[in-house]
Amino acid sequence: MIRIIALSTAAALAFVAGWSVMNHVIPKVIMVKAMEGLSARGDGVNTMTLRAKADPYNQFVVRPSPDLLYSTCVYDLELGPLEVTIGGTEGYLSVSFFDDLTNNYETIQDDDLGTELRRVMLTREDQETPTDDFTVISPSQRGLVLIRRQISGESALSRMTMAQADDGCQTMPL
């Protein structure tokens, strides 16, 4: 009887361990694969990729919104802080930052940015920022910057696309 209880307990603990390990591994693996895929299908690392409006034949990620225009920058802060520029726009806009565990650790809204071209510096905690610009600290060396713009009709799409052209990200050497 004692042996059965001991074996059941061991199996239950192993089940919990397997559950926990897999739930930790899945986001990590998917984020690594996603960043590899995004940089391979885009313009590489530390470069802003201007995505076309999502449609059934152009989907760069699961569950894209066809009502938003996306720009993506897969980043690696190994060589220094990242300068992110955001084109001026109207309507809904957000700049969101994701670490390598898929956490959305920071989001900047259009209210914070205004309508003109703006800059944001992205750094690690141990890096100094070379400018006095708005600074975001990344909890991981690698991650993703994602800019979303609301599309309100075809006329808005052309204006949003023009604004999107000013989006950028580049390494600022230390």
Binding site: A11, A14, F15, V16, A17, G18, W19, V21, M22
Partner: peptide
């Protein structure tokens, strides 16, 4: 039991 439990947990997740 341990391996089976771990595999079941991972598969369940």
């Amino acid at each position: 039991c341990v391996v089976g439990g771990f595999v079941c947990g991972a598969g369940g997740a």
